[in-house]
Amino acid sequence: MEQISGTAKAEPRPGGRGKGPGDAPAGSGPAEGVWRFPVPAIEASVPRTRHAVRDRLLAEGLTGVRYQELVDDLLLIVSELVSNAVTHAAELSPEVVTELSVGPAWVRVSVEDGDPYRPKALENDTGRTGGRGLLLVKSVTLQAGGVCDVERRGEGGKVIWASLPVPPGPAH
């Protein structure tokens, strides 16, 4: 198990390379791997997870102007999904697990909890405050050219995920 940001722990998953920034040739794109960040379903876990994911993205080579918008979008998505899990699923799920998968063309973030309720993105209602986190995730994902979904887990919980494309490198 690897310590990230001093708080959230990343667990490399089987099949994930888990290599650091020095392992990929410069300019070749991000290093590939899969990492899991289990945290308790409490408010303090939202910024902890966001910082852990940010640190991992940067360590895997998603740095500089080329990746800035992708990293910003991913961090917004992570914040919204973990916040939703902590707010709405904590009673049935004392732990929330964020998974980060980095590939050559896509980066996927997912948040899993033990609550079986499958949320739906609310419509944009200017009379309501709050309650639009999933709508924001869907909007940011689609604008970036990605895809997102909610899936049931065999254990009764759910996972909400978003995959965003990695920006192409400069033409040679």
Rank of each mutant, 00 (worst) to 15 (best):
E2R: 15
A41I: 00
E80Q: 07
A41G: 06
L58T: 12
N124Y: 12
R118H: 06
V147A: 09
R152C: 10
D23M: 01
R152V: 11
K158I: 15
A162V: 14
A121D: 07
W35V: 05
S110M: 04
T129W: 09
N84V: 12
S79W: 06
P21D: 03
I42E: 15
P38K: 11
V53N: 10
T98F: 00
E32T: 13
K9P: 03
T129F: 05
P40M: 07
E99A: 13
T141A: 13
K120W: 13
H172V: 03
S79D: 15
E99Y: 00
E151N: 14
D115Q: 10
G133E: 02
A10M: 12
V107T: 14
G33F: 05
W161E: 09
K120N: 11
P38C: 07
G156R: 11
A24V: 05
R118N: 08
W161H: 14
V166S: 02
P12Y: 01
R152Q: 15
V147F: 07
A24G: 10
G131D: 12
T141D: 11
G154L: 01
V78Y: 06
L62D: 03
W35L: 13
I42W: 00
D72N: 14
L92G: 00
V107M: 09
E32F: 03
G130W: 08
D125V: 14
V65N: 10
P94G: 02
G22T: 06
G130H: 05
I4V: 15
V78I: 01
L75Q: 05
E151Y: 12
L75S: 12
A59G: 12
K120C: 03
G154I: 05
M1R: 15
G169P: 00
D115S: 05
P47G: 08
V78K: 01
A59V: 06
E11Q: 06
K9G: 04
R56T: 15
Y67F: 15
M1I: 15
P30K: 05
L134Y: 13
V147K: 05
W106T: 14
D149F: 13
E99W: 00
G146M: 14
W106V: 14
Q3W: 08
I77A: 10
G18A: 01
A26K: 12
V82E: 02
T49S: 10
S45K: 01
P38V: 02
K19D: 05
L136V: 14
G169R: 09
Y67A: 09
E60M: 14
V111K: 02
E95P: 00
D125F: 14
G154P: 07
V109F: 01
R54V: 00
R56A: 13
L74H: 03
G64M: 02
G16I: 03
G27P: 08
A8I: 04
R128Y: 09
G156Y: 13
V34M: 01
L62E: 07
S83I: 01
V97Q: 04
R153F: 04
N124C: 07
G64E: 09
G156F: 08
T49L: 03
G131R: 06
T49V: 03
S110L: 15
M1P: 15
R56I: 12
A121Y: 07
